[in-house]
Amino acid sequence: LVRYRTISKIPQITLNFVDLKGDPFLASPTSDREIIAPKIKERTHNVTEKVTQVLSLGADVLPEYKLQAPRIHRWTILHYSPFKAVWDWLILLLVIYTAVFTPYSAAFLLKETEEGPPATECGYACQPLAVVDLIVDIMFIVDILINFRTTYVNANEEVVSHPGRIAVHYFKGWFLIDMVAAIPFDLLIFGSGSEELIGLLKTARLLRLVRVARKLDRYSEYGAAVLFLLMCTFALIAHWLACIWYAIGNMEQPHMDSRIGWLHNLGDQIGKPYNSSGLGGPSIKDKYVTALYFTFSSLTSVGFGNVSPNTNSEKIFSICVMLIGSLMYASIFGNVSAIIQRLYSGTARYHTQMLRVREFIRFHQIPNPLRQRLEEYFQHAWSYTNGIDMNAVLKGFPECLQADICLHLNRSLLQHCKPFRGATKGCLRALAMKFKTTHAPPGDTLVHAGDLLTALYFISRGSIEILRGDVVVAILGKNDIFGEPLNLYARPGKSNGDVRALTYCDLHKIHR
């Protein structure tokens, strides 16, 4: 019993810090008490220290592992850092350059016999395009090294910054494609005289377009951006097909006994025919423009016929181009109408809503002055909100995010209106959640004399007048207030005048 009563005193000691020596009952000389009392004092002292730490809000209350900052290894790049964003855009520009100039170089340097010394005699450094290609190869190699040090988000939505895990993730992902696209074939085969082989191998750079397509997928929600990307894709495919079309004609031209190829026909049409040795002929500019003209006309199913396939190889390629053109029509131009419709969806919704308003007016036989006010209010409210119901949009977000959005939407009023000066951010967040926005066209009466005042109004834009009878008592403008002081009276009061809008007004109100 003594032991039980001794232990039962522990909660009292913990909360009230009572010393055991003052209790005459606990001072009985028993061996059990002498053993338990020192333990009680020690526990009391420890609990006292913990309570003191909690009340003082000291940093040592938290466990040590929670006080440590997340460790980022040296030379690790955050995937959302500004440097990584700028670097990704730079790589994107280099990939676009590669997609345009690599097929052009591979096709127009394929057994090209233009006048001038061969590239091997001039030297590697004197070729501007080769120098640019070398810079692109170096940048792609540097990009691989950067990807080995860039964080990523795993399946659990955690940012991984450990170098080993980053390397394994990159090896399992895009490393092989990036490595093949970054191989400097110019340096590996330079001086061997195989410019045709170098041009063909350099087309491996186009593998990076797969990554670019995935990154550009984030802009699919913007109709104008999608339309622009589709047109660029169409032009890029036409450019690639033009390079292939020229390569076919250029390879067949020296081996044909009869002059029936499209390059021969082009030379005869523009007065620059090929001679018996295969030299001469149109310039590279004429060849490229004509090839691009043929691919565009074939892809769009126009086909004027002034550039036509004559050999079997050219006919087979033309059939493939027609098939590609039909697929592009289905996948690209078939979506253009939907994209344009999405661009004008706001206008369509406006006309639909206006039609419903006019049908309501016609069905209920609203008189002319009231009908005009109804239409003007709808037009003004639509121009202010673009038909978007803010309350319906915010309803799907958590309250903390709703408060931040409301604070942002009402920031101008909260910053410049005098009653809100000096208020804490928590108070402003709470008030912003209570605001209701209303609009009024010129001549609209917001409050009639004798109406119950259940709200306090803040003028965000425009001006109003307060009338008693036919006498203008006051004219209020931006950041002015009218209405009933909230919670100042037990019952809502009545208006002693009319409140009429002089201009288009936007008002925020808080109800009782």
Rank of each mutant, 00 (worst) to 15 (best):
S345F: 03
L134Y: 06
P128L: 14
T347A: 10
R358Y: 03
P309K: 01
E359R: 08
I324N: 01
S383L: 08
G116W: 04
T98P: 01
R371C: 12
A330W: 07
A423R: 01
G191C: 04
W87E: 01
L292R: 01
D286C: 01
V336C: 01
I237Y: 01
F83E: 09
A125Q: 07
A330N: 01
F435N: 03
D268S: 04
Y124K: 01
L188D: 09
H408S: 01
R218N: 04
Y246I: 13
S283M: 01
A381Q: 11
E195I: 15
A247F: 13
N156H: 10
P184W: 01
S105T: 08
I388S: 03
V132E: 01
K425A: 09
M390Q: 09
P118M: 11
D133G: 07
S331H: 01
C417A: 09
L92R: 02
W245F: 01
L200C: 12
I332R: 03
E157S: 11
N410L: 06
L236V: 04
T290R: 01
P273S: 03
K395S: 12
A155S: 14
W87P: 01
A348E: 08
G426W: 01
V180W: 11
T203C: 14
T385Y: 14
G443S: 03
W262R: 03
L110F: 08
V321W: 01
L78H: 04
Q341Y: 04
R218P: 03
L428E: 03
H439A: 06
V321R: 01
A291S: 04
L394F: 13
I361S: 06
A242Q: 01
P282A: 01
L266A: 01
C243T: 01
D137N: 04
T113W: 11
M231V: 05
A125C: 01
G199E: 10
F304I: 03
T233E: 04
P369S: 07
A291L: 01
V393Q: 03
T445K: 04
G261E: 01
D178T: 01
Y65E: 05
G278F: 01
L236S: 01
I332M: 04
Q253P: 03
H239T: 01
Q372S: 13
D404I: 01
T290C: 01
G191H: 14
H239K: 01
L197C: 11
M179S: 12
R342M: 07
V210N: 09
K436H: 07
K418C: 04
N391D: 03
P441M: 09
C243Q: 01
E112F: 05
R71P: 12
F234A: 03
V302R: 03
D186P: 15
I72H: 14
F185T: 09
N410G: 03
I183S: 04
N410P: 03
L90F: 11
D133F: 01
Y288L: 01
Q253S: 11
Q253E: 11
Y344M: 13
Q68P: 08
F435W: 05
Q269E: 01
G267D: 01
I260E: 03
S383A: 11
S337G: 14
F175K: 01
P117E: 05
E121Q: 11
N310L: 01
V131G: 01
N368D: 08
F83K: 12
E359N: 08
Y170T: 01
F304A: 05
R373W: 01
L409N: 09
Q341D: 09
S345H: 12
E195R: 12
E112W: 13
A181K: 01
L292I: 05
L110N: 15
C243N: 01
G334E: 03
S337K: 04
R165M: 11
A130C: 03
L206S: 05
G396A: 13
L370R: 01
R371P: 01
T98M: 01
G191K: 13
Y170C: 01
T203M: 12
S81R: 10
Q372P: 01
S220R: 05
I166W: 01
A125T: 12
L401I: 12
L78Y: 06
I260H: 15
G271R: 01
L110I: 03
I366E: 02
A107S: 11
N386Y: 07
A167N: 01
Q365A: 10
V95N: 01
L145F: 10
L355M: 12
R371K: 14
E157G: 11
I141T: 14
H169D: 04
A125I: 15
I146C: 07
A99Q: 01
D178W: 01
A423P: 02
A182H: 01
T233Q: 05
V447A: 02
P282N: 01
N312E: 01
R358M: 04
W382I: 03
V168Q: 10
C126H: 01
I144D: 01
K66Y: 15
P441L: 10
H351Y: 13
G199T: 11
H408Y: 08
H439E: 05
M179H: 03
I388V: 07
M251K: 04
C122H: 01
F378M: 12
L216I: 14
C126A: 01
A430Y: 07
I166S: 01
L187R: 14
V136R: 11
A106R: 01
V132D: 01
L413R: 01
L209Y: 01
L414P: 01
A392P: 03
E157L: 14
L263V: 03
Y246L: 01
L323H: 01
F190K: 14
R208A: 06
V131M: 05
Y344A: 07
R74P: 07
V393S: 03
H169C: 04
T347F: 01
C406H: 15
H439S: 06
G271D: 01
V160F: 01
V302T: 14
G334N: 01
A204H: 01
P118F: 04
L209D: 01
I324D: 02
Y65H: 07
F140S: 01
V212W: 13
L67I: 03
A423N: 01
F360Y: 03
I144Q: 01
G334D: 05
A107L: 01
Y293K: 01
R208F: 01
V302G: 01
V357F: 15
A181E: 01
I405C: 05
S283V: 01
A213F: 11
K111P: 14
L409H: 01
A440Q: 08
I96E: 01
T437V: 11
R208N: 08
H73A: 12
G116D: 04
T311G: 01
I198F: 14
M433R: 11
L374D: 01
L241G: 01
P398L: 01
C232G: 12
R356A: 09
A381I: 08
I270F: 03
L394G: 01
F397C: 05
N312I: 03
T424G: 13
M179D: 01
G325V: 01
P70L: 09
V95E: 01
E115M: 04
R211L: 01
Y329M: 08
I340F: 08
I284D: 03
R429D: 01
A449Y: 13
N154R: 09
R429E: 01
D137K: 11
F140A: 01
V136Y: 02
I284L: 13
G193K: 14
R421E: 12
E112I: 07
A247K: 03
P128N: 03
F171L: 13
G305T: 01
F378P: 06
K436L: 09
C427W: 01
M328T: 05
Y170M: 01
I166P: 01
S383W: 03
G334K: 06
F108S: 01
A381D: 14
Q127M: 12
L266I: 01
L292E: 01
E314A: 02
V95P: 01
N250D: 01
G223C: 11
A242K: 01
N391W: 05
R349D: 15
K215F: 03
L279R: 09
A338V: 14
A440S: 13
V302P: 01
W75Q: 01
H239L: 01
I340Y: 08
P419F: 08
I91R: 01
L94V: 10
Y80E: 04
N265Q: 14
I270V: 03
